[in-house]
Computed example of a mutant assay.
Amino acid sequence: MKKRIIIFDDDSTRRDSLAMLLNMCADMECVGSYESAADALDLVKAIQPDLVLMDIDMPLGNGINGTRAVKAEFPALPIIMQTVFDDNENIFEAIKAGANGYLLKKTAPDKLLDQLREAFEGGAPMTGTVATKVLQFFREENISTTYNLTEKEKNILKLLVEGHSYKMIAAKSGIAYFTVCNHIKKIYEKLHVNSATEAVRLAIQRRVVS
């Protein structure tokens, strides 16, 4: 069954392009596209999508506010933010609102699709420049705790924060995919979180890795 995605973006040309791209996929489809996130929660309730692709800067309905409203009632629903600018304020406001990933609009179509698929698997995809800013943020933070993570778990969490997929983490760590999943499950337990988004947000806020 295809994964159902709704789009919020005030640029009609981009909405149409994204919808066309998704509808060309064998495993995903666009089931709605809107120019404002003002009614995001009502639309999500009505459509029940599997993922939301959310623009940040929309004059009629801010994407961060829309994300916050949706996440309050649908915490498990993946929401991937898209924007033109990788500015610090938007990045961290989006993460605090509960966004599962943060991608720049210049992301190549094939890469975007791969990152959406990663989000369905529980990942937290981020464009490289965004991941760099995230890492820089918690290098500068003074709050630090280990949560009793092993060195292997810290390395895996760091790769997760950098936006790597589970498959990429497995390749970089020299371990099997299912082993990565087991490590991430243990990381969730130690951090007392239930998703990659929450793990990344806590890592940023508490400087769990460096």
Rank of each mutant, 00 (worst) to 15 (best):
A26T: 15
D27T: 08
D27M: 02
E29P: 12
E29D: 06
C30D: 09
C30I: 10
C30Q: 12
V31K: 05
G32V: 01
S33Q: 14
Y34T: 06
Y34D: 03
S36D: 07
S36T: 11
S36Q: 06
S36W: 09
S36M: 04
A37E: 00
A37W: 12
A38G: 09
A38F: 14
A40W: 02
D42E: 15
D42H: 14
L43E: 14
L43P: 07
L43W: 06
L43G: 02
L43I: 14
V44R: 00
V44G: 02
K45T: 05
K45F: 08
K45E: 14
K45R: 11
A46N: 15
I47F: 01
I47W: 01
I47N: 05
P49S: 08
P49E: 08
P49V: 12
P49R: 05
L51T: 02
L51F: 07
V52A: 05
V52P: 00
V52N: 01
V52H: 02
V52I: 04
L53C: 12
L53A: 05
L53E: 04
L53T: 07
M54S: 15
M54T: 03
M54A: 14
D55T: 03
D55C: 06
I56E: 11
I56H: 00
I56K: 00
I56S: 14
D57G: 03
M58I: 07
M58E: 09
M58Q: 11
P59E: 06
P59Q: 09
P59F: 05
P59A: 03
P59V: 02
L60H: 10
G61W: 15
G61I: 13
N62D: 15
N62L: 08
N62A: 11
N62H: 15
G63V: 06
G63E: 10
I64R: 11
I64W: 10
N65L: 15
N65Y: 14
G66N: 12
T67L: 11
A69D: 12
A69L: 02
V70A: 07
V70Y: 03
V70I: 12
V70E: 03
K71V: 14
K71P: 13
K71L: 13
A72T: 02
A72W: 03
A72C: 06
E73A: 12
P75F: 03
P75Y: 05
A76S: 10
A76E: 13
A76Y: 11
A76T: 14
A76H: 13
P78M: 00
I79G: 00
I79R: 00
I80N: 04
